[in-house]
């Protein structure tokens, strides 16, 4: 494996593998968010949040997830800078009129920046409050874990309170839209970079990727919107 990660394909391999790792995280995240729509006053969601906060495997995965984001962002920056240099200093006066090139594929770095900006807001909204600063909404509540009544943080109240603000819902919709577009290209592109594609599988990965991208994007948005509209008060 000498110099593999120094080569162009090696660097893209890192982008793809971290990208797909982040995709699996999205699936876990989305399924947990879906519990916000269970009309039980947040009991199930709080139980799930408690599980995520206490399970040792999840605790172990948290820094790995952070590292995944970091590698993805750092290598995206390195590759983008190299690519701009490779393009040369002169630009075409007649522009680029190539048809049938997906808009997202040409703007992955910009879309990534949109997602990163959203992530900052998102982490400040929830992660920081839950893990570091605490919040008045996080007052304790009781749930039953394996037959035992346990005192846990009321994560549902914090999420519900946050999604009660219209601007938050709008920011989430924009973030999810950026994510969806990012995935429409990123998903199939990862498999192409692994070499797991050909003329037939390219179409399949593109379809699977597009469906997945919009499922995730619309999923996150819809949960926030429904929370805003029907779960307040």
């Amino acid at each position: 494996m000498s110099n593999f990660f120094g080569s162009s394909i090696g660097k893209k391999f890192l982008m793809s593998i971290t990208g797909l790792f982040l995709v699996t995280f999205l699936l876990v995240h989305l399924s947990l968010n879906a519990l916000l729509l269970v009309p039980d006053g947040g009991e199930l969601f709080n139980a799930a949040a408690h599980f995520m906060a206490t399970n040792p495997l999840i605790k172990l995965m948290e820094p790995v997830l952070g590292l995944g984001f970091l590698v993805h962002i750092i290598y995206a920056s390195i590759l983008t800078l190299q690519n701009q240099k490779a393009r040369g200093n002169d630009r075409y006066a007649s522009g680029n009129n190539t048809k049938n090139v997906a808009w997202a594929s040409k703007n992955m770095y910009v879309l990534g920046a949109v997602i990163l900006a959203f992530l900052v807001v998102h982490i400040a909204n929830f992660w920081v409050k839950m893990k570091i600063t605490g919040d008045s909404l996080l007052g304790h509540t009781h749930i039953t874990v394996a037959g035992v009544e346990t005192q846990v943080e009321n994560a549902y109240a914090l999420v519900n309170g946050t999604f009660g603000m219209l601007w938050v819902v709008i920011v989430y919709a924009i973030g999810s839209l950026g994510l969806a577009y990012h995935l429409t290209h990123g998903f199939w592109s990862a498999f192409q970079t692994f070499g797991l594609s050909n003329s037939i599988w390219r179409k399949r990965w593109t379809v699977i990727g597009t469906v997945f991208a919009w499922f995730v994007g619309i999923g996150f948005t819809l949960i926030a919107v429904l929370q805003y509209l029907f779960f307040q008060g």
Binding site: T98, V101, K106
Partner: peptide, 14 residues
């Protein structure tokens, strides 16, 4: 000094 492929597919079209 050639760049890294981002699978946009413009090359294939042109």
């Amino acid at each position: 000094g050639f760049g890294n492929c981002t699978n946009t597919g413009a090359c294939e079209v042109e």
